[in-house]
Design a protein around this nucleic acid. Structure first.
Length: 485
RNA sequence: GUCCCUAUCGUCUAGAGGCCUAGGACAUAUCCCUUUCACGGAUAAGACACGGGUUCGACUCCCGUUGGGGACGCCA
């Protein structure tokens, strides 16, 4: 019997998609998918100063990377509106807003305000403590105001707040929230440059686009009052609102740029997986109830419930995110993982073989060590002869009195061999010979060998690494190491 | 300052009046696995902000205090 579920994500195109925005988008998306409803992307670009087409494209790219695909809104390629409630960019809906502003003006529910910024500033600083800007003393008639306005006198349109009634909002996550109407003053509907303002567009569009539920950040909670007043004045039905707790930084302040990486784009570049970001952010302010923490997008859709939304803010814990990313990464099949890693190796100019054996063996060795896709760069670079170098850590091993002997024996063994690579068995055998001939064991044996192979005293299991390296490069490496002793 | 929201381990959370000696995960510590580092496994330490009610019984319900957050734009 209830209205069909139609939810929207309505970003303003100013920069990359923030992780908080991603979570808002995700919850709306999950709700729509679970209820068989529509997920709509609406662009709130009425701030001409800050909104750019470039940002719009970036946000769309981020949303697509996350796999949060919308049913209605702007087309990702052409940016044209797709859907029967368009256009979906507020900058293209100006006639619509005009129509409704005029309606309010004519019903005497709004008025032209000719005061200048300076006058308003003066009022604020007049010494009196206004919690809201007072309405102008003598309002001109609509006819007169329109005349002055059309003659070029700048004026903003303000909503008339009557100021004596309480508004109750049934918030989907917070329950009943009551706002006294007098907490807000006559607020702007239309700027003096003719552009309508957020609260107005949002209210009108939610109504016109038949939005059934609005999940948005808690910072909008008090805007809801204004939007409700607009909706009421226009005779529209209000959607159901649900205000999400904020995502916080370590210092418990609203997560912002100074907390480090906050945009989806940054996490993408850092080598995080979209499914990990979705999973992590989903659990910031919501939980599925049980002990399961690693969830696929499909599981999120199945398990999502507004009852389990958290009311208090949640700190974005980079460490846990990294762990979660590593977990998702290790769950990836080899070919998928390789397809994600290869472009990053190329970008870092690391050249390694790409036959199936190599991919399989190397990934087996490196997977447990990878937390982000970018970790592959450091992991694979020792396999590339061009970038072989001796690490600082290895210098200490080099200085051990027994190390040189180990290198020499290792080298002579390599020289005696033919074929392209060493097998695991070859290696075990060789190590035993080094042990006997150089008369060392334990740490004094293994660490120098490791240094002779990868230039570092720590790293993945040599048994797996050895078959990944050619005999030729093994030799070149030990020679290089010897030249440093 | 005014209004609104909020409060369980350091962090994310489970907990819908007795199941709680408060569970899980990340991080931390120790041990096992491993002749390295990880991965994996085990163990340990670690929280109901405080004060009043309500109740036979409160982490759970109500009120207050305190702490934290948000909003108060011709930003969204």
């Amino acid at each position: 019997m209830s209205k069909p579920v139609r939810v929207r994500f309505a970003p303003s195109p100013t920069g990359y998609l923030h992780v908080g925005g991603a979570r808002t988008a995700l919850y709306n998306y999950l709700f729509a998918k679970q209820k068989g409803g529509q997920f709509i992307l609406r662009i709130e670009d009425t701030d001409l100063e800050r909104s750019t087409e470039e940002s719009l494209r970036m946000q769309i790219a981020d949303l697509q990377w996350l796999g949060l695909n919308w049913d209605e809104g702007v087309d990702p390629r052409t940016l044209e509106s797709v859907g029967e409630y368009g256009p979906y960019r507020q900058s293209q809906r100006l006639e619509i807003y005009n129509k409704y502003v005029n309606q309010l003006l004519e019903k005497d529910l709004a008025y032209y305000d000719f005061r200048t910024d300076e006058e308003l500033e003066q009022i604020k600083n007049s010494g009196e403590k206004f919690t809201r800007i007072p309405r102008p003393e003598n309002l001109p008639s609509l006819v007169e105001a329109r005349k002055r306005f059309s003659l070029g006198e700048p004026a903003a349109v303000r909503f008339k707040v009557e100021g004596n009634k309480d508004h109750m909002i049934h918030d989907l996550v917070r329950g009943e929230v009551t706002f006294p109407e007098d907490m807000v003053g006559d607020f702007i509907l239309m700027r003096s440059n003719g552009m309508p303002v957020y609260n107005f567009c949002c209210a009108v569009d939610d109504a016109l686009m038949q939005i059934s539920h609005v999940f948005r950040a808690e910072e909008h909670l008090s805007n809801t009052l204004r939007q409700k007043m607009i909706l009421e004045a226009l005779g529209f039905e209000a959607p159901q609102f649900g205000h999400l707790s904020l995502i916080l930084g370590e210092d418990k302040q609203k997560l912002s740029k100074r907390h480090g990486a906050t945009s989806c784009h940054q996490y993408n570049e850092l080598g995080y997986l979209p499914q990990a970001l979705l999973n992590f952010v989903a659990l910031l302010g919501w939980s599925p109830g049980g002990d399961q923490e690693i969830l696929t997008p499909q599981e999120l859709i199945e398990k999502f419930s507004i009852e389990r939304l958290q009311k208090a803010g949640a700190v974005f814990d980079q460490e846990k995110f990294k762990w979660m990313n590593a977990t998702h990464l290790r769950a990836l099949p080899y070919d998928k993982l390789w397809s994600l890693i290869e472009p990053r190796l190329n970008a870092a100019q690391i050249k390694v073989p790409n036959d199936n054996d190599f991919i399989h063996n190397s990934l087996t060795a490196f997977k447990p060590k990878m937390e982000t896709l970018n970790d592959a760069i450091d992991l694979y670079s020792p396999l590339d002869d061009q970038s072989f170098f001796i690490s600082d850590e290895a210098k200490e091993v080099l200085s051990w009195p027994t190390s040189r002997k180990v290198f020499e024996v290792w080298k002579s063994l390599l020289e005696k061999r033919d074929g392209k690579t060493l097998t695991e068995e070859d290696f075990d055998q060789a190590v035993n010979e080094v042990k006997d001939q150089a008369a060392v064991k334990g740490k004094q044996l293994f660490m120098p060998i490791r240094v002779a192979i990868i230039g570092k005293p720590h790293g993945p299991e040599l048994k797996i690494l050895i078959p990944l390296l050619s005999l030729k490069s093994l030799l070149a490496r030990v020679e290089k190491v010897l030249s440093h002793t």
